[in-house]
């Protein structure tokens, strides 16, 4: 028997056990923001703060990094591209991770805002990936003597970029928003597994030129402190502006859905 029908039947059966009309439980706390209206009100309140904070962090971090840190003794002033490269690379991966979590929430709890947040994050993630690739090329040219090398990290990012493109294209191709949300969520789950697989495959395929991670919890491995603090400020700025952009874009998507919902009823009446 198809799942859908069984579930509906089971639901009704459970409800009839309680012998009274069920009062829908109002979600509280975190899940209450799954309500589009509440989400919009919330984002309207926090967005200005986020814009300002992210702007301040980015300006302070970048100015500090570009003009008030010493040049690296080997890399010269080229090293300063780290202040764009590392945060954007971090956010490129974290954006996909956020989409994965949002997709899971949509699949399990059917909160529309979650699906729309995943949709809203994808283009931001693409921009971050492109930024990481571009700054990497600019950095790689003087360091390795080439704009592009088939290094595992670079290749993985290129593949991640392709995954983003596919995800966005699927959203665009499907008319019905709920169908699109379901299908892109499935794609995001499967894509995540394959992205990790590809990462290992690419590692196996070519040991690379790229240096190890610039940041790690192991202090010994880290870049020197003079570079470290402004880098952290830049990362904070990127995280904040990512959150702000996603909130803002999610708001746009919510309004689009609302327009659609109203229009659908208008044209039918």
């Amino acid at each position: 028997m198809p799942i859908e029908r069984t579930r509906a039947t089971a639901y009704i059966w459970l409800m009839s056990m309680t012998d009274e009309t069920p009062i829908p439980k109002r979600p509280s706390g975190f899940w209450s923001y799954a309500n589009p209206v509440k989400f919009l009100a919330f984002s309207a309140r926090v967005l200005p703060v986020l814009w300002w904070l992210s702007g301040i962090c980015l300006i302070v971090g970048l100015v500090w990094g570009f003009f008030f840190t010493p040049d690296d003794f080997r890399q010269g002033s080229t090293v300063k591209i780290i202040y764009l490269h590392v945060p954007s690379a971090l956010m490129a991966i974290n954006a996909w991770f956020m989409m994965l979590v949002a997709s899971l929430i949509w699949i399990v709890r059917r909160h529309h805002v979650s699906a729309l947040a995943a949709k809203a994050a994808a283009p931001v993630g693409v921009v971050m990936t492109l930024m990481a690739l571009f700054t990497g090329a600019v950095w790689g040219q003087p360091m390795w003597g080439t704009w592009w090398a088939w290094d595992p990290r670079l290749t993985s990012f290129l593949i991640l970029f392709l995954f983003y493109l596919g995800y966005i294209a699927l959203w665009e191709a499907i008319e019905d928003p709920d169908t699109a949300a379901d299908l892109t969520s499935v794609l995001c789950l499967v894509g995540s597994v394959f992205a990790v697989l590809s990462r290992y495959a690419v590692n196996f395929w070519n040991q690379g030129l790229h240096q190890g991670a610039s940041l790690s919890l192991d202090k010994e491995e880290n870049v020197a402190d003079v570079f470290y603090v402004p880098l952290l400020v830049c990362i904070a700025g990127f995280v904040l502006i990512f959150i702000a952009l996603v909130l803002y874009r999610t708001g746009t998507e919510i309004r689009l859905r609302r327009t659609r919902a109203l229009l659908a009823r208008e044209t039918r009446a």
Binding site: N35, R258, A261, A264, A269
Partner: peptide, 14 residues
């Protein structure tokens, strides 16, 4: 009803 909303998939947006 043309403006039916209960249970509709876009109910949350109305």
């Amino acid at each position: 009803a043309a403006d039916a909303r209960a249970g509709a998939s876009d109910e949350a947006f109305l």
